[in-house]
Amino acid sequence: MFTGIVTDLGEIATAEGAQGTLKRLRVHSSYDPATIALGASIACGGPCLTVVAVGPREGGCWFDVDAAAETLDRTTVGEWAAGTRVNLERSLKIGDELGGHIVTGHVDGIATIVAKESITGGDDPWGPTARFTIKAPHALAPFIAEKGSVCLDGTSLTVNSVNDDMFSVLIIPHTLAVTTWGDRQVGDRLNLEVDLMARYAARLADARRAE
């Protein structure tokens, strides 16, 4: 379980395997290797992946994760290569601050950036702010609500507006600086996880209609 609050910006060091098969990724991170156990769950760019190997490196650690066919089919992980930067979050511990919203790391589908607008310029003392307009897969659009929560590439964000299968999010300067959002451009594909409560509410509504 996660919150969508990114705690490190990692980089893919190596990627072995191909789309549709098991893919092993080595991630470079600033995490302390002594705190990562084999079998630990780390959200990497959205998907919850299991650590299968870990070791120290200058400035932090490296860790290996495996992505199976389901993950490769539903996420952008199959597109990752050496040099790809990914948002990282360690799994929650009892007593941790729930700063974002409840995130499972189970990606529902892939969304696409269709517009990017700079809200403040470089003269702003806090740096730029950006509004992104994003197109969701049609089947997932009903789960996205104005002022609700959504997880994109592992970041917990508030939905600003919704228009059919299009929605917008506002990214503040801090988030642009410490996550992959600072690199994002029109046409980029994003791992989308809809709000957990919306998912279950829709399932219950379907069950009632079936009755």
Rank of each mutant, 00 (worst) to 15 (best):
I5H: 07
A18I: 14
G20S: 10
T21I: 09
T21A: 14
K23P: 03
R24G: 08
S29W: 01
S30E: 13
A34M: 09
T35Y: 03
T35D: 05
A37D: 12
A40H: 10
S41G: 11
I42G: 00
A43P: 02
G45D: 05
G45E: 03
P47K: 09
C48P: 02
T50Q: 10
V51W: 07
G55I: 13
G59P: 13
C61N: 09
W62Y: 14
V65I: 13
T76D: 01
A81F: 03
A82N: 00
A82C: 01
G83T: 05
G83P: 01
V86K: 05
N87I: 03
S91I: 05
G95L: 04
D96A: 01
E97Q: 14
L98M: 14
G99C: 03
H106A: 10
I110E: 06
I113F: 08
E117H: 13
D124E: 06
K135Y: 05
L140I: 05
L140T: 11
D153T: 08
T155K: 08
S156T: 06
L157I: 05
L157P: 06
N160S: 09
D165P: 07
V169S: 02
L170M: 12
W181P: 11
G187V: 07
D188S: 09
V194E: 02
V194T: 14
A201W: 08
R203Y: 09
L204K: 08
L204Q: 09
L204V: 15
A207Y: 15
R208M: 14
R209L: 12
